[in-house]
């Protein structure tokens, strides 16, 4: 692996994780906001809301994880090396 490729790979890996976490971060924030509002309005539905929230948070989290997987590919299984 020449130094230019490895430098580009490391930068791209950082960008993949960093940019990839922006959207899910915003999404998770608004989902949690909605869940908290729901719980405040209807405290008896807390269990159901919490379950749904966890599930949807995990879905958004998986978007970040895709970025991480791309970063890992670039770092450990670089196809250009």
């Amino acid at each position: 692996m020449d130094s230019l490729t490895s430098a580009a790979s490391v930068v791209a890996a950082g960008l993949a994780v960093g940019l990839g976490s922006i959207g899910p971060g915003i999404g998770q924030g608004s989902a949690s906001q909605g869940a908290v509002e729901g719980i405040a309005r209807q405290p008896e539905a807390e269990g159901k809301i919490r379950g749904t929230l966890l599930l949807s948070l995990a879905f958004m989290e998986s978007l970040t994880i895709y970025g991480l997987v791309v970063a890992l590919v670039l770092l450990f299984a670089n196809p250009f090396s």
């Binding site: 989290e61 998986s62 994880i65 895709y66 991480l68 997987v69 890992l72």
Partner: peptide
């Protein structure tokens, strides 16, 4: 990839 990525 979700499972793999999270655990790894």
């Amino acid at each position: 990839f979700r499972l793999f990525g999270n655990i790894l």
